Simulated scan of single mutants.
Amino acid sequence: MTTKLRELEVKDLLSLTRFFGFSSETFSLAISILDRFLSVMKIQPKHLSCVGLCCFFIAVKSSEEEKNVPLANNLIRITQNRFTVSDMMRMETIIMEKLHWKVKAPTALRFLRLFHSHIQEQLDHER
């Protein structure tokens, strides 16, 4: 796995987020799940698209309204990937197990928002 491959996957996830109109929080959570998984598992580059799509799917199910969650087979079709729903569900289980079923972790976006809020409070106090 290389940094460049990860960056390409992040761009794909951003495209999916925009395509479906999902929130920045969903995108940030998908990246967080992806990075956390990649930090504990070595994967072959050929599996990265399945891992990335599963991380996106997990993030969507955790962050978005249930009625807005796309079906797995629609995600596979839209992304033109060459794996099955069964492959995706199996990978989702592997990811969840490796993350100890803890999906909602602090994200970079959450940190930046908290930091920004703290700076704003400091500026307001100085005025």
Rank of each mutant, 00 (worst) to 15 (best):
N74C: 01
Q120A: 00
E7Y: 14
I78C: 00
L75F: 10
L109F: 06
M89S: 14
L14C: 06
L114K: 14
S62N: 11
D35H: 13
E64N: 05
K42D: 08
K46F: 01
F56Y: 15
F57E: 09
S28H: 08
N68Q: 04
L5S: 03
I76M: 00
C54I: 00
S15K: 15
L5D: 05
S32G: 12
F56A: 06
I95Q: 09
H125L: 07
W101K: 01
N81I: 02
T26P: 01
L71G: 01
C55M: 10
K4P: 00
E9R: 08
L99A: 02
I76R: 08
M1L: 10
M89V: 12
A72I: 10
R110V: 03
E7S: 13
Q44L: 04
E66W: 13
R113F: 07
E97F: 06
S86V: 07
K104R: 09
I76T: 01
E97K: 12
A108L: 13
E92W: 07
F27N: 14
L29M: 15
K61H: 11
E7I: 15
D12T: 15
I119D: 12
W101L: 00
I31S: 05
S39P: 00
T79N: 02
I95G: 01
K98H: 11
L53D: 02
F83G: 08
C54S: 14
L8I: 06
F27H: 13
E92K: 05
L53W: 08
S32R: 14
R82D: 12
N73Q: 13
I78H: 00
T79D: 03
D124I: 09
S62H: 07
F20T: 02
M89L: 12
A30S: 14
F83N: 04
V40F: 03
L112W: 14
L48N: 01
Q120S: 03
T84P: 03
C55A: 08
Q44S: 07
D87M: 11
T107W: 09
H100L: 10
T3K: 04
I95K: 10
T107I: 01
K102L: 06
R36V: 07
S24G: 08
L99Y: 07
L71D: 03
C50N: 09
M96V: 04
V40W: 01
L8K: 09
E97A: 08
R127H: 09
L114F: 14
R127G: 02
I94W: 11
S39M: 02
E9N: 08
F56W: 05
F22R: 10
R110F: 03
R6P: 06
D35W: 14
Q120W: 04
I33A: 07
S15D: 15
E126A: 12
L5H: 02
H116E: 14
F83M: 09
L109W: 07
A105V: 12
I94P: 02
L38I: 01
L14W: 12
P106A: 05
E66S: 07
F111S: 00
E126Y: 15
D124E: 09
A108H: 06
A108I: 07
L34H: 11
L75P: 03
